[in-house]
C-alpha cells in the first residue's frame, strides 16, 4: 500500500510543479514527473509479488507471472510522453526567443 501512496505523492509533486512554479522549463519538468508517476503506477498495477517475465517455456519452475499488458501500455504512454515533452520544450525555446525570458509573469499578452 505504501508504494501506491508514494506513487500518488510523486503525482502530486509533479502537479505542484505545474501549478506553483513560474519558470517554463520547471513547468515542463513538473509535467514530466506527473507522467513518470502515472507510468510507475501502471507498472505497479501489473506487478505480482514474486512474478517473473511472462515467457512460456518447457520446464517452468516458477508459475507466477507479472501482467504484461500494463507494460505494453506504459511503452505506448512513454512514446506519447516523448512527443508532448519535446513539443512543449520546442515551444518553450520559441517563447524564450520572442520574450528573452522563461518567467511566465513576463509572458502575458493574452488575458480577459
Amino acid at each position: 500500500m505504501t508504494v501506491y501512496l508514494l506513487c500518488i505523492l510523486l503525482f502530486l509533486i509533479g502537479l505542484y510543479g505545474v501549478v506553483a512554479k513560474r519558470n517554463l522549463i520547471k513547468i515542463v519538468i513538473g509535467l514530466a514527473i506527473m507522467e513518470y508517476s502515472v507510468n510507475l503506477f501502471l507498472i505497479l498495477v501489473g506487478y505480482v509479488k514474486g512474478g517473473t517475465a511472462p515467457i512460456l517455456s518447457r520446464n517452468l519452475a516458477n508459475k507466477v507471472f507479472v501482467d504484461p499488458l500494463p507494460q505494453a501500455m506504459v511503452l505506448t504512454a512513454i512514446v506519447i510522453g516523448l512527443a508532448t515533452t519535446s513539443l512543449l520544450l520546442a515551444i518553450a525555446i520559441r517563447l524564450y526567443r520572442k520574450y528573452k525570458t522563461f518567467d511566465i509573469r513576463e509572458i502575458k499578452n493574452l488575458k480577459g
Binding site: F11, L42, I80, T84, L88, I91, L95, K98, K108, L110
Partner: peptide
Amino acid sequence: KEELEASFKYQVLGGASSLFIL
C-alpha cells in the same frame, strides 16, 4: 508571441488532463 503563449498554456493544461485520463 500570442500563438506560442496560447499553445504553451493549452499544452500544459491538455497534458495534465491527459495524465488524469491515463
